[in-house]
Design a protein around this nucleic acid. Structure first.
Lengths: 178, 178
DNA sequence: GGCTACATGTAACAAGTTACATGATTTT
DNA sequence: AAAATCATGTAACTTGTTACATGTAGCC
């Protein structure tokens, strides 16, 4: 992945919403962006350090008794500029890798019985996701303006899960015909 | 990515359809699996070598004048077993990273005007994809049994592109309200 | 009494991209 | 005449995952 790390921008974007610690960055990313983004601590913590070094953010260390120091990061002017620079650039389409589909594809040639299992599993995963999304949608505070993207993000997950479910239904029928 | 490489299985699955050279593996993957899988030559060629070493495939070298030797790989019994072992395992959901969505998400907080641009671009990409898919669907030989998954794969791409287009339309409207 | 959430990190390792290197043949 | 396709590969580099290490606080 000799390609500019997106982790930096994911963090920059999160910090742009307000000062945060590494843990919060990860949690909020999970909450609001699960359907299209993910970062691991193994990426976040080292990147935050690097970003302070590169002056994209400042760090404030809060000492706590019997617990590790909490480190609050704040985006700098340079960081804001960097974020905006990236925002102006067109997104490059990230290559997809969907293991479920790969197994279904190859399974058709080898163990046709297995294919149904994978399709069923895939559909079940989508149903579960859909239920989770609906729960979250109910809990959503419609009035909050900040919730707009949270709402749109849930809707994104909803539409995708539904589309995949539809595909699973269709695929199952087609395969049954054989 | 200290996680068992899927590249091995992608290649194994391709070779299971018949002996192939590295170039063909890549091309056929692009043709039939673009919507859910991708491999680069930088992954394929070294992996093929390793697979011969591990006796998952055998190699046949065809000498050609003025052109590099062509190397045809054939899956071995051990390779078939390995493929089937993997097929039985449940797929692990691969983490998503969709840069378009990330930009749209952060853009809402920073440069609202930019967001529309990204949404438009994203929708345009999907429209183009949809047109490509339709072209390919027309060229499809319905009678060929081998074409079943090719057909299903195109349908998968179609459903996903449509879902994303729908999302773009909705998102644009919601954002315009602000 | 046990699980989950909070909070930070590192080291080992593997995976994956891109650019480079090379050149014939076929199509437009 | 140029562009695309066929065909193989490597090296440099970065990204990203997982397992480990550590411990408190709060909830059920």
């Amino acid at each position: 992945m000799a390609r500019e790390s997106k982790t930096k921008f994911a963090i920059l974007g999160m910090l742009n919403q307000g000062p945060k610690c590494g843990y919060e960055i990860k949690k909020e990313l999970e909450k609001s962006a699960t359907f299209f983004w993910n970062e691991s601590y193994g990426q976040i913590y080292p990147m935050l350090k690097r970003m302070v070094r590169e002056e994209l953010a400042t760090i404030e260390v809060i000492a706590r008794e019997d617990q590790p120091d909490m480190k609050i990061y704040t985006i700098s002017d340079k960081g804001t500029e960097e974020l905006e620079r990236w925002l102006k650039l067109p997104a490059d389409p990230h290559p997809v890798r969907n293991e479920s589909m790969l197994k279904i594809y190859f399974g058709a040639n080898t163990t046709p019985g297995m294919v149904k299992t994978h399709i069923t599993r895939y559909r079940d995963r989508m149903s579960q996701q859909l239920r989770d999304i609906e729960d979250q949608q109910e809990q959503l505070d419609e009035s909050a303006e900040e919730a707009l993207f949270k709402k749109l993000s849930l809707r994104y997950g909803e539409l995708l899960s539904e589309a995949i479910q539809t595909w699973c239904d269709e695929a199952e029928k087609e395969i049954s015909k054989l």
